[in-house]
């Protein structure tokens, strides 16, 4: 019987599931499914994982120690992806790493199907995170907080947090992931934090500061005047800046 572990779609949940799968089934076949997104299959046993911080930390330490930081980086990013099968792919990658001589170099083993999948997921998540570092637009609320809303496919907030914390250390800023309903909050001169399940006052988010509209206008003026008319190329623009990012960007606000 194939054992399937069911967990929530969070890093703690997935690490706990990997932890249990590794403890009980590292030589056998096992799968990891996400709660609410699992498809029932024949000849499988299902088990809901007890998720704890301790298991997560233990598994993270193991990956870093035996598979190296670079592999850990790839696995972490892969686990943020929107793919339902991510847990299983990572589990099989860990099994494959065990079979080769130098486990730290497992990510070079792209001939392996599961390694290739983890690589592809990690690449797509980190690419999306990079896109959001580029395309996030803050607006200044009347309380002085810089606020932004995004709707990413993967849970990229933790990937972009360090970047913005380093960039705006003296600002209070906040990014809201509408899809996964998570806030990334940074208080002036403090570390950033993730907040789940909080609800912000919708009115407060619409009350922008006095100068905000002026700077939005200035930016729109700049955006239209910087383009060279003779070189117009909407296809190229679409390639670099896909439509799905545009509703949340200041310079495309009029097209909404």
């Amino acid at each position: 019987m194939r054992q399937i572990y069911i967990c929530t779609d969070t890093i703690t949940g997935l690490y706990s599931a990997l932890h249990d799968a590794w403890a009980e089934n590292r030589d056998g076949d096992a799968g990891i499914s996400l709660k609410g997104r699992a498809q029932q299959q024949l000849f499988c046993q299902y088990k809901t994982v007890v998720e704890t911080e301790q298991k997560a930390r233990r598994l993270e330490r193991m990956i870093r120690r035996y598979m190296g930081y670079n592999t850990y980086w790839d696995i972490y990013h892969a686990l943020l992806s929107e793919d339902c099968e991510k847990g299983t792919a990572v589990f099989r990658t860990m099994q494959a790493a065990r079979r080769i001589e130098d486990s730290r170099r497992i990510m070079e083993h792209l001939g392996d199907q599961d390694v290739a999948k983890v690589f592809a997921m990690s690449r797509s998540v980190s690419n999306e995170a990079h896109m959001y570092e580029e395309f996030i637009r803050f607006r200044e609320l009347d309380s002085g907080i810089l606020f932004s809303e995004i709707s990413p496919k993967a849970q990229i907030l933790t990937c972009i947090a360090d970047h913005f914390a380093d960039r705006f250390p003296l600002e209070n800023w906040m990014i809201y992931d509408k899809v996964h309903e998570v806030f990334l909050v940074h208080k002036k001169q403090e570390r950033w934090a993730l907040v789940w399940g909080g609800m912000a006052d919708a009115d407060a988010l619409e009350r922008v500061s006095e100068n905000e509209k002026d700077y939005e206008k200035l930016w729109q003026i700049f955006f239209s005047s910087i383009s060279v008319r003779e070189r117009e190329n909407p296809k190229c623009q679409r390639n670099h800046l896909p439509f799905r990012f545009r509703p949340e960007m200041t310079e495309f606000a009029e097209e909404k």
Partner: peptide
């Protein structure tokens, strides 16, 4: 930590104008 801003080696594009 005393001001605003940082730089990244690869550079970061922030938008693309209609000429691409």
């Amino acid at each position: 930590g005393t001001g605003m801003g940082n730089c990244s080696k690869a550079g970061i594009c922030h938008s693309f104008s209609s000429d691409g």
